[in-house]
């Protein structure tokens, strides 16, 4: 069970994640969606304590089964209680190390002996659909999809309580995406991990997620079950996002787009960050940030 409360991440004096709160229950998949730059990845990197150089957590807390995830604690439990699958499998493996050894490394770090780690690494390879003979190959000898299976094997090696998958299929061929999602969901079911699936791909999220959180400009704007958010989105941004998604049988004609661009965090407008692009914005929207209440952060919904 992951509980995140009022998380703030600051980089260069700018809040790139601005007061985000959510929960993920054991066995549940939370789909975190939003355009690029909306802060989804930063939120999850912050939870795992993996923020890049200039970014820092400057507010809020994250707790896993009631224990607060401090930096010192994360150093001990990362890889064991928290598994992370990254976006680009081409760069997330060490090019100079055999893949079997890279899987075994996470087990060795958390106390397994050499032989036991090696044996378990082979089991994990089989679990993600790779023959044990591939343990001795190097990353460049594998396809992107195969490499991502290796990363997944590392992430689930110690049956983590929390599994974070950050755009796990974005860098892959469409034909491979489906397979990787199947491997990931099987791993998630097998480990029973609370899972956060970060993606800009609504189709992917709609198939895999039980609940959905929509982010815009570093803030959460809507949360709910997958059916609610995808079927009847309440926030104008979520609604626009759903409309702009290509669907089979939707007829010809251009896809509806959201006019304008998402703001960079440093030029985020006051009030609701979406109000300059919002078709139903009220005067109040430009002045006060709407709180997330009843699963939606929108004055027009809450007042209307």
């Amino acid at each position: 069970m992951l509980e995140v409360k009022d998380l703030v991440v600051t980089a260069g004096g700018v809040r790139i994640v601005d007061g985000v709160s959510f929960e993920v229950r054991p066995g549940e998949v939370l789909g975190m969606v939003g355009e690029s730059g909306s802060g989804k990845t930063m939120t999850m990197l912050a939870v795992a304590g993996l923020l890049p150089g200039p970014a820092r957590i400057t507010g809020g807390t994250a707790a896993l089964y009631g224990t607060e995830l401090t930096e010192a604690r994360l150093e001990r439990i990362r890889g064991r209680r928290i598994g992370f699958v990254f976006q680009d499998p081409a760069t997330s493996l060490n090019p100079l190390m055999r893949v079997g050894a890279q899987i075994a490394e996470v087990l060795r770090i958390h106390g397994l002996g050499r032989t036991a780690a090696r044996r378990r690494a082979v089991e994990l390879l089989e679990q993600v659909g790779i023959g044990p003979e591939r343990a001795r190959v190097y990353p460049h000898e594998l396809s992107g999809g195969m490499r991502q299976r290796i990363v997944i094997a590392m992430a689930i090696a110690l049956r983590p309580a929390l599994l974070i998958a950050d755009e796990p299929t974005t860098a892959l061929d469409v034909t491979v995406q489906e397979q990787i999602m199947r491997v990931l969901r099987a791993a998630q079911r097998e480990t029973g991990a609370a899972t956060v699936l970060v993606s800009h791909d609504l189709g992917l999220v709609s198939e895999a997620a039980h609940r959905i959180a929509v982010m815009y400009s570093g803030r959460l704007v809507e949360t709910g079950t997958a059916d609610e958010v995808l079927g009847a989105p309440r926030h104008p941004y979520s609604a626009a996002l759903m409309r702009s998604r290509p669907r089979i049988g939707a007829g010809r004609g251009p896809l509806p787009v959201i006019p304008g661009h998402p703001p960079a965090p440093k030029s985020r407008p006051p009030g609701c960050a979406f109000h300059p692009r919002c078709p139903v914005a009220l005067a109040r929207c430009a002045q006060e940030v709407p709180p997330l209440a009843g699963g939606v952060a929108c004055w027009a919904v809450q007042d209307g």
Binding site: L50, R76, R78, R80, N94, P95, E105, I109
Partner: peptide, 26 residues
């Protein structure tokens, strides 16, 4: 700065391991 160093950290590897075992050979 490479992604695979972040992977080592995600696996629970310390800074020294990331530096000596992964960054140095590269």
């Amino acid at each position: 700065e490479q992604d695979f160093i972040r992977t080592v950290r995600a696996k629970g590897g310390g800074r020294l391991r990331a530096l000596a075992r992964h960054a140095l050979p590269n």
